[in-house]
Design a protein around this nucleic acid. Sequence first.
DNA 1: CTGAAAGCGCTAACAA
DNA 2: TTGTTAGCGCTTTCAG
Lengths: 337, 337
Amino acid sequence: MRRMTIRDIAQAVGTSPATVSKVLTGRGDSLISDTTRQKIRDTARELGYSPNLAARALVTGRTHCIALWAETLADFHAMVANVLLDVLRPSRYEMVITDVVKHPDWHAYFQRNAPWPVDGIIALDSPHSVESYLASGAGRNAPVVSAGAYFWPETDHVGVDLGSGIREAAFHLAEQGCVRIAHLTCQHGMRPGDSRRLAYEAAMRDLEREPELLVTEQSSREDARLLIHDLVRRGDLPDGLLCFNDEVAIGAYRGLREMGVRIPEDVALTGCDGIADTAYFDQPITTIVQPVDELCHAAWQCLQRRLDEPDCPLQSRMLKGSLTVRGSSLRREVHGP
Amino acid sequence: MRRMTIRDIAQAVGTSPATVSKVLTGRGDSLISDTTRQKIRDTARELGYSPNLAARALVTGRTHCIALWAETLADFHAMVANVLLDVLRPSRYEMVITDVVKHPDWHAYFQRNAPWPVDGIIALDSPHSVESYLASGAGRNAPVVSAGAYFWPETDHVGVDLGSGIREAAFHLAEQGCVRIAHLTCQHGMRPGDSRRLAYEAAMRDLEREPELLVTEQSSREDARLLIHDLVRRGDLPDGLLCFNDEVAIGAYRGLREMGVRIPEDVALTGCDGIADTAYFDQPITTIVQPVDELCHAAWQCLQRRLDEPDCPLQSRMLKGSLTVRGSSLRREVHGP
DNA sequence: CTGAAAGCGCTAACAA
DNA sequence: TTGTTAGCGCTTTCAG
């Protein structure tokens, strides 16, 4: 059975497509007589009409889709995607997910496969992709709001400052009596300008300690776990581990337990991002919680504004992560004043 | 700056839009002379042309988007979404995510907000939505492949049989010496026909034991955790917990530890689905692993077939979950023959 | 209050 | 090998 069009409705009601369009979109609705309006609505329902959004998009230039760019949909990014879905629900927008990591040559990618024409893009933790997107010139098609734990002056941006949280975590570990506080990070975290590493290094300077970087290939549970095994075997384990993110911390946690290392007595551990699972371990994992709700609301707000006023001034907001201390790093009873 | 169209290219090259279209889509490419083809390609690149996919979709009827329907993007569903992204990458398809739970009246929903016109839908664990989608008559717009741990005869379907895994888990718990094996589930799991509960009940019958259902509101870590607290306080804790899924198991795990209950000595625990975190606890959690890779590949394969041959016979595949025994349920050393 | 007409950017017959 | 033509389904002036 063919799909219904406004023409079918017009015919059935005995009016013109233009009138049907006016009623069904609500634009100019008020100028149409009650009877016609009602007849059109009823017929649309009866016929099971649903508009062809591609056609609508073609003429209006709006698809009412936005893209979420992310490197993967796991853990923290899944959390964000999830919240974003909630944030978007009241709007008439839908979300298409573009996984951005596997197209290192985004520019070339754009030549071949044009991605779905979204009205705007929220780029999560993927400044690289934003950069080549802008360079490819496609930027004029859909505005980008960049979001993530870094500074980004080239587009609208909602940042999360993890620096102060990391610093707090480092001082916290010191206060808990850790002698060797290492930053367990990954290649990703070693990129010049990575705010977590920088904050860690700065904190170490202020604590007058040597920074120590432990670097895995991927920021994965498994890589972290294996690295820990290695350190234990070599007898070279620090007693404080400030991890790049929660996945790394969870992997480290497992690695430590497998090797019979006690947490936090032998090694105190902190993660970063605040994914749900950290709270559920035998020693709940201390972490720096990102304000995901605020992040998503702010990002969507920025994007909406940009869609309404393409030429509004560059928007930039900075949020803050906050240290949540849990058992994995708590060696001393908190003592009163 | 205006967006480029094939007309602009045609004009620049001195040819017609049709020719440009042929070259750029590759259809009829071979009939065009090398020189023209090259000129068109070069000019397209220079001008930063990218096709208007809404226009293309309008005429071809194909958007090259598929939808993933899921109730949420957390945990297991996030895993699936992630793998699906991988599966889709080689194709020219993109994925739009539709969160399906909060529209209880899907039928009415469709009247108002037509969702983005995707070519097809993969409905993950959401038979209810599929049902009202079909009832709404929208089914003729885009075919659905349903995927999840249940039986579903009304559309193409890729199922996962968890029944045998659950049964195995129940027998495993019995073998480990559990006296009271309860099924810790949620409202969702109490719906008539829920395959996990049915398999649990059947296993209990065969073990000649009383089935015991513990039911939380949501299938969430928190609800499970609180329920456990309650049971412990009432002194009414079973010594075997066969959980609806891994979130519930993780919440139960936490609840038990908080109350000083030992796992597996006092209570043996099994989860279901096989999300990554289960492996990282102090007592790694026994779980029934769903074959996510196969699931995604099969679902996409079904959908592709259906898109190519709209009238092909109903497709149905059944995969199997497999019990992975870990420490959370292992009270006795495995003894050799 | 309603309808006719034009056109969004593209593809697909068909003609040349 | 290329160009002409006719839409895809919808919205949007603008004229009734």
